Amino acid sequence: MTTMVLAAGDEFVAPGVKDFFLPPIFGEVTKPMVLLVLSILIIGAFFIAATRNLKLVPGKFQFAAESLYDVGRNTIAREQIGAKDFKPFVPLILTVFTFILVNNLFGLIPFVQFPTMSHIGFPLAVSVLVIYPVYHFVGFKRHGFVGYLKHQTMPPGAPWFVLILLIPIEFFQKFFLNPLTLAIRVFAAMFAGHLLLLVFTLAGEYLLFAGGITVVVAPIAFVFAIALTFLEALIMVLQAYIFALLSANYIGAALAEEH
């Protein structure tokens, strides 16, 4: 796990936020930074290997790549953006989905065991620096500056006295809150899940070596840790899917003719 701090004297010290701030590997470079770069190399190598020798009857790598592409293209982009506009955004949605997925799954890989997205700065960077500019840019491009602001903040048919309250709320949500909640959602899930795994794993180890009757209880903690590992794997995949889904949804909403 992140650290192996078990106890101070005879007292168990529970893991916390401090365990997510790892010491630099060299210079100012930390483990999450290395994992972020490694994820890009893994994704690039996977798709290059999978598409290198395409066959009518796909092999394992080609089948996996085609399945991921199908999820990004048809399940997410086409459904959320619409059949008319989705094609230019397929590479973005597929990249975001696989990037978040690989960085989440790092939390389950032995000797790595750290989900990169449990550091708020990384999902925030993807949301604010990539997704946020894209969907507002395409919205302004399609509707014009004033038209897009009206499109995002003034639902058609709403009475004027409702708009007085609704316009600032919608403006705050669409231009400030959406990119933050997009990032916080995956960060919170990865942070909480990894923290729970730390608690049960380190608690089980502490109980095992503390001596006395606690040895009997230790297997229970390990069973919970194993069960949480499977649950966390599911959540990691779901959070990557939800991040890509909402990203496509924001783009689709920006392009839509009707609010």
Rank of each mutant, 00 (worst) to 15 (best):
T116A: 11
G139I: 04
V126K: 01
Y250N: 07
A8W: 04
E66K: 08
L92H: 08
V17S: 08
G121N: 15
L208H: 13
P133R: 01
F191S: 14
H259Y: 03
P179N: 03
S67A: 15
F97Q: 12
F209W: 06
L255V: 01
H143A: 08
F137L: 13
I226N: 12
I40V: 15
F89G: 04
I81M: 07
H194P: 06
L180E: 00
I251T: 02
P219T: 13
V71A: 13
Y69S: 10
S127H: 08
I40E: 09
V96T: 13
P91I: 14
H259N: 00
K150Y: 04
H259T: 06
Y250M: 06
L245W: 06
F63S: 15
V17M: 10
A218C: 10
K174P: 00
I242M: 10
I169A: 05
R73M: 14
F47W: 12
A65H: 00
P32R: 15
I93C: 05
V186S: 14
A77R: 02
P115H: 06
M190E: 12
F111R: 12
G27K: 10
Q62C: 01
K31V: 13
I164H: 03
A64F: 10
P15L: 04
G204S: 11
F222A: 12
A183D: 09
G72A: 07
V71L: 09
A65I: 05
M4Q: 12
V130M: 02
H136D: 00
P91Y: 11
I48V: 15
G107I: 04
V37L: 15
G252L: 03
L35W: 07
M33P: 04
H151L: 00
P155D: 02
L108Q: 11
F12I: 14
M236L: 13
G139W: 02
G139T: 01
W160I: 05
V126N: 02
F176W: 03
V237S: 05
F26Y: 15
V217L: 15
K55F: 03
I48L: 15
K31T: 13
T153I: 05
F161W: 13
E205V: 14
